[in-house]
Design a protein around this nucleic acid. Structure first.
Lengths: 204, 204, 204, 204
DNA sequence: CATGAATGAGCCTTCATTCAT
DNA sequence: AATGAATGAAGGCTCATTCAT
């Protein structure tokens, strides 16, 4: 349990105050990452920005990386939620329309806090991101895979692989574009690539 | 010149011994990054692995980030070289064939030292990668852009944007796949996405 | 605030323990300077002698120079206090008597920890000694200047200059004498020079 | 002989080139001290500024401190020479005139490279300044002592002590004044103090 | 539970000195 | 003799983590 729980929150705070503190810490981490990058991300700074003491921080998180994991989980959850909403909305729509909608969701997510998103993308792999924390990320891919598998107009050998590929290519393309501030019609560009990948290019 | 040269090598070694040391340091950095990630990447470890002393390391590089920059440059150069070779070979080939060839080059490059490639992709943006060091990366995109612009069967509004997008989506897709050890027909997958992006999907 | 506060204490400790630590560090610095000179003055040694850890040291001082500054300030304050006491005692005394008393104070101060005093005299100028830290030194000169300006038996064009000159000549003379262990009637020698400087030589 | 010669030049270079190099090194040290203080004074910088290699530097000086010692000696010699010239010129003059002339020499010396002079004053005591190197400094005091002893209008108990005291008070006063850029009638101020010290104040 | 002072391993970097060429 | 690359001890400083209050 020592190493396994390295990334899990130390305790699920039941009391209101506790939860609020934990959330403040995670949000403080997000702020700092967005504003100063990994270099400025240290437990003292996070605690200070969260209006808590280091001691409290360690009450809720077993260590620095666990905060990152919680933050990654939070972001993944948010993305998953946004994707879910869209997926159910476009379940019956034509494929290109559905993909366009999802691309827009992805672009919106990565755009809202671009630096944060990019950093988390990078860290997600570095930390093994213990199974539990990775669940959220996995969840997104699973949902997308199910969507793809359910489309009668697609005949994918491995929907899980496709889902993961699409997520990664979209992330790569979007992060790169945001870095270069080349955001015009970004969703459209992602859509073209995705449809092409799925063997259903729009231009046909 | 103080902050500007933060990433440039400190002195270009003239003597054979010096050049060998500088190269050994860069290669040692690559080894360590591949084997232990950024966590194990510190000047003492790099120097030790290179069979040199810290003092020597600082003779050739103004700091640890400069080593990273040199390594990134080296890898970018290698990729650019491989791409160049392929580009000239497939200049006249049908588009899908040309793209397939380039995808294969990209997959090969990222696969040879997957962890290293991924780490460098992440760091490349973190360091501003001073103009000079970024030249190599830029170079790759420029070459690809020229290739795309020259294709009569493509009519791209902005070849530079397209080139950058293709590079980034390919990196995203490939890195993600390698992380999951899902490498089967990787080049094919990349090709489909690329052709789709270019509005020339293979399946038409 | 970054460079400006290079010499100011980092945090004013509120708790008793904290203040004690900060003071122990300053006193440790004094001990080391007296015993081993600037060569032995390093953060590890100071912290060790203070019975604290480097970490604590850096909690209270932003760097080693700040410790020097704090020490210089402490010594200047002590000297100023001693001078103050004497000044009020001899305010109405004949000039030569007053100067003799002050010379005795200066000799006593520099003699109590001669090496320390000499080192601080040397360092005081090297560090710019930020305005705040310099205040104490300035204070001494100001007090003396006021005293000189108030003497009816003196007619000085620039009492501030005279005060600074007297302080410096006394320091030079005393430090030099202590170095040579030539301390007999030191206060008398200083007094003669001072009275001469003031144009009121005793021998007239 | 190991520790004893720590401060002596390693070899008295007989060949012209050797002497030139040694002198260049000493002058480079002076330049650096004047321009950047002790912080910038390191063997690599000195060698570079002297147009020599570190290796050559170590050919002529056993270590870093020896360069300082040589420089101190050079400056002391120059001062002694200037003082000698003046002493012989004013041997028969009235005391206040003679002292005034010497004060002017001291002011001129300390003013020509004020930072250098102050630094050397500080270092002179720190290094033990091996007997030989100290000889020059001693020499100045001896000359002055002889002059004082020879004056029929003075009756000093200990001319050596008086000479040393005068030199030190003058240095303290002058260095302090130059630091504050308060140089007007500096020689006059020194003279008043000196005459007062000698019990022969000008104002009588 | 909260606080924040204390700890100290760890890492970066400099520079005096040596020595192979 | 000269050169300058190499060495590595030494020291400055940070920050994750612990623990007394």
């Amino acid at each position: 349990m020592d190493d396994a729980n390295r990334l899990s929150p130390r305790k699920t705070p039941v009391q209101r105050r506790g939860r609020a503190t934990a959330e403040a810490i995670v949000e403080a981490a997000a702020h700092i990452l967005e504003a100063e990058g990994l270099a400025g991300f240290n437990t003292n700074a996070v605690a200070a920005r969260a209006g808590a003491s280091v001691g409290s921080l360690y009450q809720y998180f077993p260590g620095k990386e666990a905060i990152l994991a919680a933050l990654a989980r939070r972001e993944a959850d948010r993305f998953a939620a946004a994707l879910d909403a869209t997926l159910s909305r476009v379940a019956a729509a034509p494929l290109d329309e559905a993909i366009t909608a999802m691309a827009a969701v992805a672009v919106a997510h990565q755009s809202s806090r671009p630096r944060l998103a990019r950093l988390l993308d990078g860290e997600e792999q570095r930390l093994g991101l213990g199974d539990e924390a990775q669940a959220a990320t996995r969840g997104t891919a699973d949902r997308l895979a199910r969507f793809l598998a359910g489309r009668p107009d697609l005949d994918l050998a491995d929907p899980n692989e496709a889902a993961a590929d699409l997520l990664h290519l979209a992330r790569g393309l979007i992060d790169g574009a945001l870095e270069r501030s080349a955001a015009s019609d970004l969703a459209g560009r992602v859509t073209r690539a995705a449809l092409g990948y799925l063997g259903a290019a729009s231009g046909c």
